[in-house]
């Protein structure tokens, strides 16, 4: 993309704040999980979350209720568990545990649509998807252990994915592993190539 097109796009994006969510982009993750599994031996755990900045207004509460209602109805259809959490930054986490990544993606996209309809799309921050090395998945003893987890973060402001691999129990990250994930996926899904934009998400409330 040329420099001027970049400027034009960023002006356009900032003007059309409400309509810039690209639901096509996030669905590309569905095929990318197969690549991750065959080439990096990483399997989705089905756990994922949508992170929304909450506001104290009445409309936001209404929207929250509607999302809860929607998830309650579609639960038997899509086969997932869900719960919500609020983190120390005041962000609402909608945590889903779907049976397959497609179920989780469908649920997240439906929730994002609802939020957009209510006019809160600028409040959507990111969604995050969890992966774990195949070897550890077979060892069911440590299923609830977060050690060795890799994450893909989808940033709704840039409509791009980026990797996040924290060292377990530390506030530092495994850059080498993150770069490997980028190399594996960058041709398949919209990927954030600027590593200066790979913002971490510490203390995941999973």
């Amino acid at each position: 993309m040329s420099f001027f097109r970049k400027i034009r796009k960023s002006i356009y994006d900032s003007k059309n704040n409400e309509s810039m969510i690209d639901s096509e982009a996030i669905f590309s993750l569905s095929s990318a999980t197969i690549t991750l599994e065959t080439r990096q031996r990483l399997k989705p755990t089905g756990r994922c979350a949508l992170i929304v900045k909450s506001t104290s207004g009445l409309y936001f509460k209404e929207m929250k209720d509607e999302i809860q209602r929607f998830l309650g109805i579609s639960k038997p259809d899509l086969q997932f568990d869900y719960r919500t959490a609020v983190d120390s930054y005041g962000y609402l986490w909608l945590i889903l545990a779907g049976r397959t990544i497609e179920d989780s993606l469908a649920a997240i996209t439906a929730v994002v649509d609802t939020i957009q309809e209510k006019g809160f799309s600028s409040q959507i921050l990111a969604s995050i998807f969890e992966f774990r090395p195949v070897r550890e998945l077979e060892n069911s003893n440590e299923k609830n252990n977060n050690a060795g987890m890799r994450y893909l973060v989808y940033n709704y402001k840039s409509n791009k994915f980026y990797p996040f691999v924290p060292f377990f129990g530390e506030r530092s990250r495994d850059t080498e592993n993150e770069m490997t994930i980028m190399a594996t996926l960058q041709k398949e899904i919209p990927f954030e190539k600027d590593m200066g934009m790979w913002y971490p998400l510490w203390d995941l409330p999973f």
């Binding site: 921050l125 200066g196 913002y199 971490p200 998400l201």
Partner: peptide
Amino acid sequence: MPTKDLRQAE
């Protein structure tokens, strides 16, 4: 590489 959390940076 950013050290600031995404929620702060936003």
